[in-house]
Simulated scan of single mutants.
Amino acid sequence: MRNLLIICLILVSANIFAQDFIILKNGEEIEAKVLEINDTKIDYKKYTNINGPTYHINKSEIFMIKYESGDKDIFNTSAPTRKTVSPVYEKPNDFVYNPDIGTPNCQTQKARGAKIFGNRGNEVFFRQDLVYYGYDMTYARLSNPKRMGESMTLVQKYFNDWNLEMEKNVGYPEFKKWMRKPSMLLGTPVFNNYYKRDFNKFVEYGNFCISFDDLQKIVKSYVLRETQGIGMVINIVNFNKDREFSMQYVTFFDIKTREILYAVLTTGEAGGGGIVGHWAKGVEEGVRAIFIDEIFKPKLSNNGMIPSKIRLY
């Protein structure tokens, strides 16, 4: 009887102090014991002070609750309602190249690093309705003064080979596996948009960057078949010969609204033989070694979480 009583007490204690995780849309995780969920808020106690005060948090701030049992509740993932009226996004019928995208002679980055944009990374980490659109080199530049005057030749000769090499090294099957997204779909690639770019403006004398605002314009210009889910695209920005790095965004956006939910700007050290393999290696380093291994797998949702040794800017 005594042993039975002890076992019962242990089971009751385990139930009382079961640990839940409240994951906020801004990336913060709260260790808690959830007490009640109503229409607008959640009541909980801090796991570290289970006998302390009861706290309240609005459901609009919460992305997901992971319960001690392993069950999950995912809350409304749509963007918060704003009081101001925003312009309605109109889906384009044809892709239009924007010659004003990008900033020449911008600040040169370290050869290996990352910077996070967007505040809805947790949706990307946990949702399964992703659509992969491949690599986009429409606005990519090569920073190499010795290649000035060769833009058209380089675009015509190497762009398709770069795409094939990058997809072979870090493509759709690899992302499904590394990101644990078995339901990820393969959309119509956006790579062919580069046919409408200015072929004479591939080589730059100095460094070249694409701002987050410009990235948003690029995403809004895509002509896509799908109407919902999270789109994923790798936007190649710059092959920098002086510093020997490749710069690219790994971009995730709401297909319906085209709002960028989460984007990670990465740089990777170039290497390998031949002009194709050399820069494809930099992309692989930036996407797999930096984005997948250093950012996505540990679920880093803001720049403060990035180790200083690889933090850009």
Rank of each mutant, 00 (worst) to 15 (best):
E244T: 09
K256N: 11
N238S: 10
E259F: 04
L224F: 12
T227F: 10
I210K: 06
M247C: 12
C209Y: 14
T251H: 04
R180E: 15
E244F: 04
I218R: 03
V170W: 05
R225H: 12
R197Q: 07
I234Q: 11
L265V: 03
I255F: 04
G274F: 00
L265Y: 04
R180H: 14
F199M: 13
F252D: 00
M232E: 14
S183I: 01
T257K: 05
F208V: 03
R197F: 01
L215K: 06
S221L: 06
G187D: 06
P173A: 10
P173Q: 07
M184A: 09
T227V: 13
G272W: 08
D254Y: 00
I236M: 11
K176C: 09
K181M: 06
T257M: 03
T251Y: 02
D213V: 10
M166E: 10
E259T: 08
R180P: 02
T267I: 02
E244I: 04
M179D: 05
R197I: 01
N193G: 04
N240V: 06
N238Y: 05
L261R: 11
L261P: 08
V170T: 12
Y195S: 12
K196F: 11
F208P: 02
I218K: 03
K181N: 08
L185Q: 15
R197S: 09
G171A: 01
Q248C: 11
N193R: 09
F239T: 09
F253H: 00
L265F: 01
F202S: 05
D254L: 02
M232I: 13
D213K: 12
Y222P: 09
R258C: 02
F239R: 07
M166R: 08
T227C: 10
T251Q: 04
M247A: 15
G187L: 03
N238H: 08
F202A: 04
K168A: 07
F202Y: 13
M247P: 05
I255C: 06
V223N: 10
S246M: 03
L261T: 08
L185K: 15
N240T: 05
K217R: 15
M247Q: 15
G187K: 02
F245C: 14
G231T: 07
